[in-house]
Structure formats: structure tokens, C-alpha cells
Amino acid sequence: MSDHTAEGLVLSNPRGSGFRREAERAVRVMVNARWPIFAVVFLLLAAFAAVFGAWLAPFDPNRQNLVLRLAAPMAAGPDGGVFWLGSDALGRDVFSRLLYGARVSLTVGFAAITVGGTIGIVAGLLAGYFGGWVDDVIMRLGDIQLAFPFILLAIMFLVVLGSGVWNLILVLGVGQWVTYARIVRADTLSLREKEFVEAARALGDSTPSIIFRTILPNILAPLTVIASFNVASVILSEAALSFLGLGVPPEVPTWGSMLAESRDTLVANKWWLAVFPGVAIMLTVLSFNILGDWLRDFLDPRLRERT
């Protein structure tokens, strides 16, 4: 797997260094490590499916065919079509649902990270920059959340809010913010006293400008690493919540909910219902993990301790 090369240096200010040289190094690290290439290729494929799935899908992913339910892969479907990957318990085409599922699953993953990341970054910046009671309140809120097993918190809110794609994104996102907040806070604390921040202050920049224009760009790099690991864990959480009946509504295909739906038919050997979404999840999670590793090695080997 990815070697962390001696080149992996700290980026003190990513905007400052030669972009081209950085890009070359990024590609070189990736090629040397080999695995990240597979990860990127797979994620591009998944993204392609997410964007163009509607055109690629041979069937309407929600069209039922009760008499053709639980058909094995390659079985004949309706209207002369073929169920390439079989059909599910309502006779819906697994392949088409998998393609549409890419869109929802990846959207949920990225949106949850965006929600969690945004809340976490803002909270961390405020806590780190202002310190004092602001810091206390924000960090105590973080403690409260961490003291809950996340899944219980998620269950509680989904039971109350009802399950829907947006509620799911919200809950999964809010579940992530503390991680980001803590890292951003620590970085902000140390940057606050740095010369270039002092300089900005001396030049009379407004506080929001200092926080978001001067400090923020300098702490983003490590967050991308955490984000790429978190996409993977969000996709898994989504599957777990689907299993508990709290995921997306049943007519919306996601890989997690497809896998959760397959559990009743496992004992009946309808393997295709579990294997295809299972493999899709596995490859996605794998890719994001590999990508996270690579990013970490690329950006700063010392980040390891914190992720």
C-alpha cells in the first residue's frame, strides 16, 4: 500500500507553493502507490453512474413486476429486456436500482460530510479564535454529543423526524461535526498567534475576514483527509440505519437500503440481492479509505496520529 515517501512534507501554506510542482508530486505519489489509481478509477465510475444512471439504466428502478420477482441474474425481464443482475422482491431490476442507488448513496455521503464539515469548521474556528466562553460552550456541546453513542442519537432523531433522504443527511452530518471542530480548533489556536495572522490584524482586517480568509485556507488540508475517511463511514452508517428501518424511504434505492432489504432472502440463497450492493459499498468504502491514506501521505505523514 501507500508508502509515505521522504518527500511528504508539511504544507505550511498551500496557496504559496508552486501548484504545478505539487500536482506533479501528487501524481507521482499516486502512481508509486498504485492502489490510489484503482480507487480513483472506481470512484470516477461511481460518479459517472450517479450522474448518468438515468440514461444507462435499462429499466425504471421502481417499476415492479410481481410475477418476475426474485429472478436470478441474466434472467429475461419484461419487454424483451434482461435483468443483468437479477430482480428484487418486487421484481424491480437490481442493475437499474444499483445505478440510481449510486446517486443517492454518494449524495448522502458527500452531503453529510458537507453538513458536518461546515458546522464543525465554523464551530472549531470560533472556538479556537475567540476562546473563553465561546470555546467552552462549543466544546461542551461536542462533549455532550460524543457522550452519546452516535447510533442512539441518530435513531432518536430519525424516529422523531421521520426517515427521509434530507433528514438522514442532516443526522449523519451532525454526527460528524465534533471531529472537524476539534481539529480546526487546535489548528486555529496555534495559527492565531502566527505572524501572518498578527499582520492581518495589524492591517485592520475585520474579524470574519481574518477567520475565514486568513486562517481557514491554512487549515483545510488535513480536513480533506478526514473527510475522505468519513464518507466511507457515513455510507456504512446509512446501511446500518436502513437495517433498523430508519434509512431512506423504501422506494428510494440506496446501496445501504438494498443491502438491508436483502437480509430476509439471504437464507433463501438469493445471493444477488446482497452481493451486488454489498460489493458496491465495499468498493466505495475501500476507495475512500485508500484515497484518504494517499491524501494523508501526500499532505503530511504526521497527520496520521489524528486520523
Partner: peptide, 10 residues
Amino acid sequence: DLELMEWASV
């Protein structure tokens, strides 16, 4: 317009 809900509490 299908609304499937959690049974007991919703």
C-alpha cells in the same frame, strides 16, 4: 404520494 412511516411512534 407514498409515506411509509415508523410504526409505533409515528
